[in-house]
Amino acid sequence: MSPHLVDIRLTVNGEPVNERVEARKTLVDFLRDDLGLTGSHIGCEHGVCGACTVRVDGVVVRGCLMLAAQCDGARVETIEGVSDTGEIADLQEAFEKRNALQCGYCTPGMLLTAQELLARGGVPDRSAIREHLAGNYCRCTGYHAIVDAVESVAETRSKG
């Protein structure tokens, strides 16, 4: 095997995937180009904007700052997967209700990042929500509505 090509076995959204990938291919390019999971977006490719956020082994990472080759044996989850399982249905509903997205390009990354905060439990205050989302760029909303939506879900979940 050429060392420039790497065989990987992983699960993506619960499905087993066996692929041969170029060593240089980033995780987000792999998800988009090889698996057609275009819900993870490319915004800056240098780790600043957060549009490529996905979950690897249960934690959110930048899809542009990991190589697909590194994901051998990993459990990768994308926005398509967490949408289908219903894990973030309440958060998505809150985003819709609050119009916490406009163009929607940042939204998959924003939802996954917010879900990581919410999964810790409790009701974070607005500044804690802003801090947790500080690595996810949104040019459209001005963030206020996103903070509202995340806050409302935290309140609902903590009651429930």
Partner: peptide, 11 residues
Amino acid sequence: LARLMQGRGQY
């Protein structure tokens, strides 16, 4: 919105 929030937009 639902489409965009599920990663099913078409950019």
